[in-house]
């Protein structure tokens, strides 16, 4: 495994041109059936960083990603991707959903799934080209899944399925990646292989936001951490944010008041 002591972040002096900011979230509020699950999220995400999103179950980590990607209705706030509304820059976004979000008995094989990563780049009636297939194969190779290219996806282990999803995101050739628990159900060897891959993407200037559950490795893996529990508890360089006080605030009981208020809001309407 590579040594992963994060480099000190070079602060860009002065206001950066907007295109350099991969993601900007302003006052984002999301509610499910009137019950708010995210409150006033503000984020300005710098480029070329590997960022961990951390928080307890139900903190709204998946919801934040879905809201940024426009998959759940937003009650307030806005999102800008590379300085523009999301729709304009969808091609620059890669996404690894939670593994449980799809039906693994679906009649497709591994290569079919990875080629789906190319679909966003094809025209309305365009079929995947030779080149797209080659890229998909190369991405499978990067996650060491090329020998499984023709396997039906239900005949894969959980960790292999996770790697297929990762390969599909790689095939998107994006600049900003969102990954929801890419390490869930993955063995230690695969995990370190994946983190190596993510670090390589980062070194090529990509920005990655990764939902992660293991606090013992979070410090080592990520340049920056987003501590989330219905609101942004803290967001900053790992060495500044990863401390007991803030973690306590994220995982501790102090935020239950927000949950109570959310419940009250739901009752009211």
């Amino acid at each position: 495994m590579n040594n992963t002591v994060p480099l000190p972040t070079p602060h860009t002096p002065g206001p950066a041109p907007t295109d350099d900011i991969p993601l900007e979230v302003h006052d984002l509020t999301v509610a499910y059936q009137k019950k708010p699950v995210l409150w006033g999220i503000d984020l300005v995400v710098p480029a070329g960083k590997l960022i961990g999103i951390i928080g307890p179950n139900g903190a709204g980590k998946s919801t934040l990603i879905k809201a940024i990607l426009g998959q759940v209705p937003v009650s307030a706030g806005w999102v800008k991707v590379f300085g523009e509304p999301l729709k304009k820059n969808l091609r620059r976004i890669g996404y690894v959903p939670q593994r449980e979000s799809v039906d693994w008995d679906f009649p497709v094989n591994v290569l079919d799934v990875v080629i789906m990563g190319r679909y966003g780049r094809l025209g309305l009636f365009q079929r995947p080209r030779r080149e797209d297939v080659d890229i998909a194969r190369a991405c499978l190779d990067q996650v060491k899944m090329l020998p499984f290219a023709n396997r039906q996806i239900s005949n894969l282990s959980g960790g292999q399925q996770q790697r297929v999803f990762l390969a599909r995101a790689l095939a998107q050739e994006a600049d900003l990646y969102f990954m929801d628990e890419p390490f869930a159900g993955v063995d230690a060897a695969t995990e370190s292989a994946i983190i190596g891959l993510l670090q390589e993407l980062k070194s090529r200037g990509k920005t990655l936001m990764v939902v992660h559950h293991d606090l013992s490795t979070a410090k080592e893996y990520f340049d920056m951490l987003l501590l989330l529990n219905m609101r942004v508890v803290s967001f900053g360089p790992t060495e500044q944010v990863f401390n007991n006080e803030l973690l306590q605030k994220t995982y501790g009981g102090r935020l239950t008041i927000l949950t109570d208020v959310a419940e009250a809001v739901k009752q009211q309407s």
Binding site: K66, L69, G70, Q71, K87, L90, R91, I93, Y95, P97, S101, V102, D103, F106, V108, D112, V113, M116, G117, Y119, G120, L122, F125, R127, P128, R168, Q172, F178
Partner: peptide, 22 residues
């Protein structure tokens, strides 16, 4: 025939399909 791709990916993984702009 024309929209096979779109039908396939939206059936398999609608979240991903939406994120790729389909």
């Amino acid at each position: 025939g024309l929209f096979y791709r779109q039908l396939l990916v939206t059936s398999f993984d609608p979240g991903f399909a939406r994120a790729s702009g389909l």
